[in-house]
Design a protein around this nucleic acid. Structure first.
Length: 522
RNA sequence: GGCCCCAUCGUCUAGCGGUCUAGGACACCGGCCUUUCACGCCGGUAACACGGGUUCGAGUCCCGUUGGGGUCACCA
């Protein structure tokens, strides 16, 4: 049997990090077994701009390297893969259920059902519809319709017996049929609902394994009922845990941003991203640009491999030590048996740790290309860049090393790209390192003159030069170096001083020192 | 509330009856290194929810309690 899995996004306009994790498990399982992974679009809820709402989702999957064999944009032998285009087929299948006596026309009004439901709840018993508006004959139908009622189609669920489900991650799960509801599968206007559509599609698309989040576990019985009623062969089910909020077991939701922002790690990741977005002129509303949404990471400059590797470990593990997985390795190692049962909290801090690891492995050439667009979007370098930009960025990247953890972090070193007379100083640092220490200005002036005449301007010789200067002056290195840093970069922190000097070059160093000195003394 | 699921450090997890005075990773806290920051190195705090069984022996099996979660739509 060919393994075929699917992920079924509804076009909401963004790709949720928890959804991706579930999609990843589907993708891995299919790849592992040489099968197919497909995307099916759950748009039975007629929406206006499906294409527009779908684009970011497809883009997210592409960015992450989760490719689909069949579905939107790639087609496939069992299409269309949009539920909205398959309505007629669902209606036909609903009719088959009706014909088989497994579904019925129901003329109850919504509030009449609701009353029964509330009564059951008040009596602390499980709800079971009385079926008092069930039409069992044409005469019944005519009578109800004469009352001005409209019919929906409901499932006629068994009222006794048990369903024993063999779930690939949960094992044996039992449900009493009597607890299941007579769910509506078709509206009065003929349109069909999700559960029917989903089951029909899984069958039509020859899905062998339904791997989905555990919130679907409790609606599996009704889907099994539909599938069996229609004579379908059942897929294998695997209900994987959902991704939970940082520090809690609640399901991660994009609607509770305010709450997540109270989590220090989440806030840190978010603030970092927002700052970068602002600098590159990205204007996206907070509800679609935050760490719950995949696009956030792409914009901020995370690496897809880092995210996928992190997500892999949210609910799955190979053993007690392996954390690092290339795509090939994860495809090779993945199995449903090792998927955890309990929900896993999303931890932005750990994601960042993976990001840092993957970033460290990227060579300078790739990193330069990766980082360049951020400088361009921030208006710090031209587009296309001038020919000296590449080497300069590469030099900064090398010097900054692991200080640059996401693509956007290059902007922490914006001072290398601003004009000498436009350099902004961190006021507190300027005060503390340059204005306040009595000897600072004098030392800086002296060292400026040394720099003006030193023969070589390479990091190694500059280091020797400074060390010699320190010795001659009988001072500690800290007395000059902090003042020098704020004069050259405007900042309190940065990478090695000698790299800083060398990258800036003699001319710009002198110009910046002179300017800082002027300002300090004015 | 009914039904269902789940339960090891703050977090992700290893553990499938003895090798567990419970291992790893992230985070956190010390220290070292150091021109700042970061990295790195060394060290540390920190968990089997509780109660009964079963067994020579239980984190591991069973039952219960508690706690957490999911789901009960003419949403997907």
């Amino acid at each position: 049997m060919t393994v075929r899995t699917r992920f079924a996004p509804s076009p909401t306009g963004y790709l949720h990090i928890g959804g991706v994790r579930t999609a990843l498990f589907n993708w891995l399982f299919a790849r592992k077994h040489g099968g197919q992974f497909l995307l099916r679009i759950d748009d039975t809820d007629q929406q206006r701009n499906v294409d527009e709402a779908l684009a970011p989702i497809l883009a997210g999957f592409r960015w992450l390297g989760i490719d689909w064999d069949e579905g939107p944009e790639v087609g496939g032998p069992y299409g269309p893969y949009y539920q909205s285009q398959r309505a007629g087929h669902y209606a036909a299948e609903a009719q088959r259920l009706l014909d088989a006596g497994l579904a019925y026309y129901d003329y109850a009004k919504p509030d009449e059902i609701q009353q029964e439901r509330e009564a059951a709840q008040a009596e602390k018993r499980s709800f079971s519809y009385s079926r008092r508006f069930m039409a069992e004959s044409d005469a019944d139908r005519a009578r109800f319709e004469a009352e001005g009622r409209q019919a929906v189609v409901r499932l006629k669920m068994p009222r006794d017996g048990q369903l024993v489900l063999h779930d690939l991650v949960r094992g044996e799960v039992r449900f009493d049929w009597a607890n299941e509801q007579d769910h509506v599968i078709q509206r009065a206007d003929g349109s069909c609902l999700y559960h029917l559509a989903s089951v029909v599609d899984d069958y039509d698309f020859k899905i062998s394994h339904v791997i989905r989040a555990e919130e679907h576990l409790s609606n599996t019985p009704r889907q099994v009922f539909i599938a069996q009623g229609l004579g379908y062969e059942l897929p294998q089910y695997a209900h994987v845990p959902y991704v939970a909020e940082p520090g809690s077991k609640n399901k991660l939701s994009k609607r509770k941003l305010d709450k997540y922002l109270k989590n220090a790690d989440f806030k840190k990741t978010n603030d970092h991203g927002q700052a970068i977005a602002e600098r590159i002129g990205l204007t996206i509303a907070a509800d679609t640009f935050n760490p719950v949404i995949v696009d956030f990471y792409e914009q901020v400059g995370y690496l897809p491999d880092a995210i996928v590797n992190y997500l892999l470990l949210l609910g799955w593990s190979l053993d007690d030590k392996t954390e690092d997985f290339s795509r090939e390795a994860m495809i090779d190692a993945f199995s449903l048996e090792r998927v955890n049962k309990a929900p896993a909290s999303f931890d932005p801090a750990k994601l960042e740790a993976f990001q840092q690891r993957y970033m460290d492995r990227m060579d300078v050439k790739k990193k330069t290309a990766f980082v360049l667009p951020y400088l361009q979007k921030a208006g710090l370098v031209d587009n296309p860049p001038s020919c000296d930009t590449g080497p300069k960025v590469a030099a900064i990247l090398t010097a900054a090393a692991d200080r640059i953890r996401t693509g956007g972090d290059i902007l922490d070193f914006d001072d290398f790209f601003t004009a000498d007379d436009a350099l902004a100083y961190d006021e507190k640092t300027f005060e503390k390192r340059l204005r306040k220490p009595e000897a600072a200005a004098d030392l800086l002036t002296k060292f400026r003159n040394v720099l003006a005449t030193t023969e070589s301007f390479e990091p190694e010789t500059l280091e020797a030069t400074l060390k010699q200067f320190v010795e001659e002056q009988g001072i500690k290195i800290g007395e000059i170096i902090h003042a020098l840093r704020v004069a050259l970069t405007g900042k309190a922190v940065g990478f090695g001083m000698f790299d800083t000097l060398a990258i800036l070059g003699r001319e710009r160093c002198l110009a910046r020192i002179d300017r800082a000195l002027r300002i300090a003394q004015s």
